[in-house]
Computed example of a mutant assay.
Amino acid sequence: MSLLRPKKQPLLGIDISSTSVKLVELSQQGANYRVEAYAVEPLPINSVVEKNIADVEGVAATIKRALKKAGTRNKQCALAVASSAVISKNITLPASIKEADMEGQIQIEADQYIPYALEEVNLDFEVLGPTEGNPDTLDVLLVASRSENVEVRVGAADLAGIVPKVVDVESYATENAALLCSEQFPEEGQGKVIAVVDVGATMTGITVLEDGAITYTREQPFGGKLLTEDIMRRYGLSYDEAGLAKKEGQLPENYVPEVLEPFKDNMAQQVHRFLQFYFAASEHQTVDYILLAGGCASIPGIDEMIESRLGMPTGVANPFGRMSIASRVNAQRLGSDAPALMIACGLAMRSFD
């Protein structure tokens, strides 16, 4: 190892969801990672609607509070746009193409697949390598999102006083974090089909990995907000009071059988529906493992219920399972928040690309 090699500046992984800002900072020593800082900070109601930022100032103020809570001085970050706001396409180019000509050729190819003027989109690509079975062509992943999706997130980060170095896609960040959970999978996921189902507050997303690579993504409205609203109606609480009571377990005895169990049943049905969509779009009729992520994955017993209903091995995501944890980080709280931190963790992993 060269002592003169400049040390990479770690990036804060910042996930802006519909109800909160989640922040993770990692460091690396050799092949090992350490959690240096993390925070989860609630957003003002309706400042983000279905992953679209409606109140940039409100989001920026929440990022500032998350930075303070985490106790980090790092000012560089990685952000993500929603998978549903992105068009991705695998294209092939001649293997003989010169690097200088590649960008121009990709612009020409992109024009065929993107339903917007190219000046309205942010475009990126990654060369995946030679096409299987044809060494004369290269596989290239093309990714594009409307510029406004990127600019509004960058604007919120700028207002919060931090510098975005990477703008990723949520499904790719999930893929990064899922690979950290490989010890939970049969045969560490090698040659296996893993469905990562992220059930957040208002949106649920599925990312399917086949042998470690994304083959399918989908998002739909469904999430823990429905449970909070059930608690509000049942017990005459405000939305904030219901959310706090849910988090701290301060609810009457009839909460579990009459409110929580029906929600768990609904969640299991939603996971089943997502998998049916995937089976209809692929040649598979089962998956080797379901990895539950998002805040709702922390509901006690939800993994056992889904495994029993669907007949497929199911577990709760913890991307920090093999990591050491800095002394200032509350390990118990990190463990309970871990399933909701998948995207933020995957973004923080971009520090080590």
Rank of each mutant, 00 (worst) to 15 (best):
M1W: 15
M1S: 11
K8D: 15
I16T: 00
S17D: 01
L26K: 13
A31D: 15
Y38K: 08
P42V: 02
S47A: 06
V48R: 00
V49L: 02
V56W: 03
G58D: 00
A60H: 01
A61L: 13
K68L: 11
K68G: 08
K69G: 14
N74G: 12
C77V: 09
V81Q: 02
V81H: 01
S83H: 01
S84K: 04
S84W: 01
K89M: 13
K89F: 05
K98R: 11
A100P: 04
M102K: 14
E103C: 07
G104C: 04
Q105H: 08
I106T: 10
E109A: 09
E109V: 14
A110H: 02
D111S: 06
Q112G: 06
Q112S: 15
P115K: 07
V121C: 03
V121W: 08
D124E: 14
E126D: 07
E132V: 14
T137C: 13
L138D: 12
D139H: 03
V140N: 02
A144F: 02
A144H: 06
A144G: 03
S145T: 14
S145M: 13
R146A: 07
E148W: 10
E148I: 04
E148H: 15
V152W: 07
V152P: 01
G155I: 01
A156R: 00
A157E: 04
D158Q: 08
L159G: 08
A160P: 07
G161A: 09
I162Y: 13
V167C: 01
S171K: 02
S171F: 02
Y172Q: 04
Y172P: 00
T174C: 02
E175S: 04
C181F: 12
S182Y: 04
S182M: 07
S182W: 07
E187F: 08
G189K: 12
G191W: 13
I194G: 09
G200Y: 03
G205L: 00
V208F: 06
L209T: 15
E210G: 14
D211G: 03
G212V: 07
G212M: 10
R218I: 00
G223S: 15
G223I: 11
L226E: 10
L227K: 12
L227S: 05
L227E: 09
E229D: 13
M232A: 06
R233Y: 06
G236V: 15
G236Y: 10
Y239N: 11
Y239Q: 14
D240F: 08
E241M: 13
E248V: 05
G249V: 01
P252A: 14
V256G: 13
V256I: 12
P257M: 03
E258I: 06
N266Y: 02
Q270N: 12
Q270R: 13
Q276H: 12
Y278V: 08
H284D: 10
Q285I: 09
D288F: 10
Y289A: 07
G301I: 14
D303Y: 09
E307H: 12
S308V: 11
R309N: 10
L310Q: 06
M312R: 05
M312H: 02
P313I: 06
P313T: 15
T314L: 04
T314Q: 14
G315T: 13
N318C: 11
P319A: 05
G321W: 03
G321F: 13
M323C: 08
S327F: 07
R328Q: 14
R328N: 15
V329Y: 05
N330K: 08
R333V: 06
R333A: 11
P339A: 05
A340E: 06
I343Y: 00
A344K: 04
G346C: 05
G346Y: 02
A348C: 05
R350Y: 14
